[in-house]
Design a binder for these strands. Sequence first.
RNA 1: GCGCCCGUGGCUCAACGGAUAGAGCAUCGGACUUCUAAUCCGAGGGUUGCAGGUUCGAUUCCUGCCGGGCGCACCA
Length: 548
Amino acid sequence: MMKEALTRLIAESLEKLGLSDIEGYKVEVPPEGFGDFSTNVAFFAAKRMRLVPKKAAETIAGELVSDSRIERVSVDGPGFINIVLAQEAFSAVIANLLDSHRFWRISEPGSRMKIQLEFASVNPTGPFTVGHGRQAVIGDVLARVLEARGFRVEKEMYINDAGRQIDLLGESVKIRYEQIHDRRIELEDRHYQGGYLVEMAEDLVREFGDRYLGRDDEETRTFFRDYVLGRMIEGMRASMAALSVDFDNFFSERSLVDSGAVDKVLDTLRKKNLVEERDNAVWFKVSRFENESDKVLVRSDGTFTYFMTDIAYHLNKYERGFDRVIDIWGADHLGHIPRMRAAMKALDLPKDFFHVMVHQYVNLKKGSDIVKMSTRRGEFYTLNELVDMVGTDAARYFFAMFDPDTHMLFDVDLARTRSAENPVFYVQYAHARISSIFRNAEEKGVSTKNLNNADFFLLKSEDERKLIRDVASFGETLERTSRDYKINRITNFLEEVANEFHVFYNKHKVVDVHNKKVSAARLALCMVVKNLLADGLSVLGVSAPDTM
RNA sequence: GCGCCCGUGGCUCAACGGAUAGAGCAUCGGACUUCUAAUCCGAGGGUUGCAGGUUCGAUUCCUGCCGGGCGCACCA
């Protein structure tokens, strides 16, 4: 919010110099010791002004000094304009932050487009893996970020309940059910082996006894299939809830098949002459749109591929009125992107409608072991086990802490450490510390009320100015995150603010019964930082405790 | 082989084309009769995988190598 005002001032100066069409320059926080803000505008204007950057900078700087909110302007290095803001500017900001601590929210909800986030979509055939946890947190945090920035957001999980694997899942439980009744039937390789299916079978025996024993009719198969599906979805919902992730909607793949939506899309593609029959299967001409080979939509046995139903699914999303969908997929779905893009083009959906965010895998480190998470090898911790070990806050924070593009190493021991090394506690501790300051103030009879009447001109140390400046920039961090989806910006930001607060705390006494004026001003600053930390943590879905 | 992502101190990670590449862990040394020492201060540790190119300026953009992950199914 400070930067916006300054950017406007710079634009005005350019206008006065007849350079209003210069663009592409930046206003940013310079390295330590170069003032509050800095701009590289002179590098862009130099050519037009027929000056070397340094001279151009001096000319522009000359225009800037006339504003009362600017204390000092200097030109350093090859042509950077460095600006020190007047204390007045800081006072205005802190008053503003006290008034509306949710300044980083775009106030009219839904002022931007309507976005759907789809994530944690899986075959409901086994428990969530640690990788799904990363995906769920990325999705959930991104949803909170986008919502804060004025988008209407819906979170959806797609349930792949249509394929053969669900029938097999039902069969597997049926076999377990028979086994409990001492029937000599064994699972085959194609069946699911997981122990959780035995538990379900036991529940079925408890509830239904031998009602389905020895039966193999359509009704029985449907019963087992739907029962398992219900239980699996229930389990997935619980796993997500343990991570504080909830969804606005669960969407069934099967429903697309049953409603005829899939047939309809296939028909559309057929009419556009974008499919062909080959080897008894139906192929979509991906190669018409992308540099990729054609893909099967309908197998030679007449069943739909995942690709086919996914096309119908995305058309359905469009018909539901979303301006944009963001699918969050693991790196193993990379190959799916070009063909989906091709399908979107084939259906003439808007160019900007379909977004995919790909994230890399998660490896776990426990003790000195690095455990590669691989569903194929079957050697993994489940998401539930991980959350049980480290807790919701640490799990969410750690998953959010890494650039989604990079492979992350989840250090389990670090995450469960309730001490200094753990970045979650570092940030939370700053919040708890501030709460403690307020308790202390009240005990000592230093007023914590009417802080907006305090004299903010007293907050003039470099530590205090830095805190104010950074707190005020949270909106910018969120805005950038809403554009590039790199949610680790939020944890970086919070760690920086927490660090600045700890530095401030160690140097400056807040509550001082002998100097109530300074106390009031510093309490105001503490309040602003506390609100920011609480809000920032809430964007991550992590708690902000008052005591630790 | 082709495509996408990633290579940054011993380890895990940051860095909007900008100034002296930053944190944390680990190592070493300091700071609690004072609002929570779960904190802070300081030291050492780097040719940002390699080689070119574009630019006033490159960890960032481009090209080519090297290394790792993933993908290139009538799997999802």
